[in-house]
């Protein structure tokens, strides 16, 4: 069997005639009812969840309808800014696949007071600058606390929380 395809090396590829295009692809997405209120809360240093009376779940990200019960959700619940790590990673690569020396530490964090598995994506900070340090300092199940931007710098965005840091236990 003959398989078609002309494979180009990087050098050959660079010599090929190409057409370049950069579109002006910009969007302003409507946040809607649930997320607008949530973002407004962040601006004031509050984390708001939404509760469904039918299944009892306290949900974050908040939503105006419960996807499981398929009914409107019922109540806003203000959470604290402490959570536990469900999973984390130590990332040495940027969005364009270029490498970084100092890692980023994305994590799925369940905020205390929400229901099981109700995590959100965020980052960890103050846990070290090398893989070894981070692996030593971070464990799944560990408690963490939000580190906020200064109040006047907050703009009603998820980045109003800079990162989460481990809660130091006093014994």
């Amino acid at each position: 069997m003959k398989f078609e395809g002309i494979s180009l090396g990087l050098k050959e590829f660079e010599k090929e005639i190409k057409v370049e295009w950069k579109g002006k692809l910009e969007y302003e997405w409507d946040c809607g009812i649930a997320l607008s209120k949530f973002m407004e809360g962040l601006k004031h240093g509050k984390i708001l969840a939404r509760k469904c009376y039918a299944c009892g779940r306290i949900m974050i990200p908040p939503r105006m309808f419960c996807e499981r019960c398929f009914r409107p959700t019922d109540e806003w619940i203000e959470l604290g800014d402490e959570g536990e790590i469900l999973t984390f990673s130590v990332s040495f690569v940027n969005w364009d696949a270029s490498r970084r020396k100092k890692p980023e530490i994305p994590a799925v964090i369940r905020l205390l007071g929400t229901s099981e598995n109700m995590g959100i994506l965020h980052k960890l900070g103050e846990v070290g600058d090398t893989l070894e340090e981070v692996l030593k300092n971070v464990k799944i199940g560990m408690k963490v606390k939000a580190v906020w931007k200064k109040e006047k710098e907050r703009e009603g965005a998820i980045t109003d929380i800079l990162y989460f840091k481990p809660i130091k236990r006093r014994k």
Binding site: Y27, W29, C31, L35, M39, P61, S89, S91, V93, N94, W95, E104, P106, I120, L121, H122, K123, A157, I158, T159
Partner: peptide, 14 residues
């Protein structure tokens, strides 16, 4: 998610 995740500077590998 464009509201809560993309602003964090995400990466596919995550």
């Amino acid at each position: 998610d464009q509201f809560l995740e993309r602003p964090l500077g995400v990466n596919l590998l995550w």
